[in-house]
């Protein structure tokens, strides 16, 4: 199987869906309200091929020593490297009881991948500030399910770390989008997905951010990372 070139994926693994969200119980209702900070939908096949960004332009936004982006890219495979520019939707208001703690709100990330091989999928996420790692999280996807001719891997409702929750909250206190974007210029996340048994690198996704104009909701562009 070969994937069309309009989304994050290789012949071994494809990102189908990615959401970072906050969820809370409504006072009036029994159902939960979910607000998505960022979201990648399953991509329609009619999308044009991805533009390329030279990976050297963003080396310094991620750790540079001991398994940083440069080392990872040198090891390859190059077709497994992608960049996502998110315009995050921060247009939700914190409730009074949530100002001191999470107040019962749940901050999480859910993602879904698919591919032709049944493997144990591990995901390392590095949160970086000024290119330096501040938090690292290692997760293993649920065992894959065979669905419609391919294996589907899920990491559902993975809790956001305290650093990220506090970061989002502090960002929201800034009065202007320009100020938020200025802070976000030095905030990045690097995700590396591997076959846990062989340690083969399957996908490496670099995330960079701005804040969405509030009426638009979360948006994104996806790029291939390359090097001439």
């Amino acid at each position: 199987t070969s994937w069309p070139g309009s989304h994050i994926g290789t012949e071994t693994l494809r990102l189908v869906e990615f959401t970072a969200f906050v969820e809370r119980q409504s006072e009036r209702d029994t159902c939960k309200q979910q607000h998505r900070f960022v979201h990648i939908d399953p991509t329609p096949t009619s999308e044009p091929p991805l533009e390329m960004v030279d990976v050297r332009q963003i080396y310094d936004k991620f750790p540079e020593k001991g398994g940083g982006l440069r080392d990872l890219y040198d090891q390859g495979p190059p077709q497994a490297f992608f960049l996502v520019k998110f315009w995050a939707d921060l247009s939700f208001s914190l409730l009074e009881e949530e100002l001191g703690g999470t107040g019962g709100a749940f901050y999480g990330v859910s993602s879904r991948y698919e591919g032709p091989r049944a493997l144990t999928l591990s995901c390392t996420s590095k949160v970086c500030s000024f290119g330096k790692q501040v938090v690292e999280k290692l997760e293993t996807a649920e065992p894959p399910h065979w669905e419609d001719g391919r294996f589907v891997f899920r990491m559902q409702r993975s809790p956001l770390c305290e650093y990220l929750i506090n970061f989002i909250r502090k960002l929201q206190t800034l009065p202007e989008k320009l100020m938020m974007d200025s802070v976000l210029e030095n905030f990045t996340i690097l995700q590396v997905l591997r076959d846990q048994e062989t340690q083969e690198l399957l996908l490496c996704v670099a995330f960079v951010f701005e804040v969405s104009a509030s009426e638009r909701g979360a948006q994104h562009h996806i790029y291939r990372l390359g090097r001439d």
């Binding site: 080396y59 520019k85 290119g131 638009r216 562009h221």
Partner: peptide, 24 residues
């Protein structure tokens, strides 16, 4: 200048990098 002293706006990035997509 070191790369980390160069603002993102001055780097060689596609024009689309600065254009927030319209909602589908």
């Amino acid at each position: 200048a070191r790369p980390d002293q160069v603002p993102m706006r001055k780097r060689q990035l596609p024009a689309s990098f600065w254009e927030e997509p319209r909602p589908a």
